[in-house]
Amino acid sequence: MNDVLQIIVKRLGLGLITLLVISIIIFGAVELLPGDLAQAILGQAATEETVAAMREELGLDRPAPVRYFAWLKGAVVGDFGNSLASGIPVTELIGPRFKNTLFLAVYAAIIAVPIAIMLGVLAALYRNSVFDRVANVLTLTSISSPEFFLGYILVLFLAVKNSLFPAISSLSDDMSLADKLHRVFLPALTLVLVVVAHMMRMTRAAIINLLASPYIEMARLKGTPQRKVITHHALPNAWAPVINVVALNLAYLITGVVLVEVVFVYPGIGQLLVDSVTKRDFPVVQACCLVFAATYILLNLAADVGSILTNPRLRHPK
């Protein structure tokens, strides 16, 4: 068991280092601004004095490493400074929106994961059948379509032509859960369509790979019935690849929300990021990027740890 623990601790450490490097990149990128932050905010027309005053206010007179550590220290306790555009603390801006984004992502994931895995396993078991081929074409189409295309098609058919769901998914705190689920259905469905396609294809590939193992053939040659080959011989070894597929796609989902949120005017962190980029509100952009990157790294980490934990070779060391 010690071995596994050691590997996991190592992997977690690596994830932490990655996150640190990412934070340096995100912070450093803003340092690359032509001129500097103060100049960028005030524009070319600003006088020397106002720029100098702005610099002072933003603390730009301190050297970059000092400012980085101050920023990092803040980030760890959830303090990203104030928004340049509105003056509101960044955390206050991000907090509720992050919750909304998470709600949308979890909503989509709960629908997508079981469907995708089921369809993927079926496609693998009945590969080259009609079902598999139709699924192949449909998933390819879905993957290749931009999210806003799928989103607008759904709006056109399910909101405008048939008023089944609202086209704009604004949320407020006093809504009941059922209300919220109804409001957020279209963006969630858009995400589901894309993610299911990705996940299903990956699951199919992973399972086909697994079914080609010599030990599956051996099980068949031992006279094991098909059902038992799947449950007893394939499934115990399928965990690692499937966990990997799910985590990777959840990571994809987290970024896929940006476009979907804009299409449905959903008050999430993706929408906030896009707005802040347009307004060049750097503290907010930095914070949003860090949040996205951290989630992404976390999910990849979860995938790795999951596959380590389910690897029989590591679970039962020599």
Binding site: S213, P214, Y215, E217, M218, A219, L221, K222, H233, P236, N237, P312, R313
Partner: peptide
């Protein structure tokens, strides 16, 4: 049946 690669033909789980 006895396969060539026993290492691959036994289920690791």
């Amino acid at each position: 049946y006895v396969a060539q690669s026993a290492a691959a033909s036994f289920n690791p789980s």
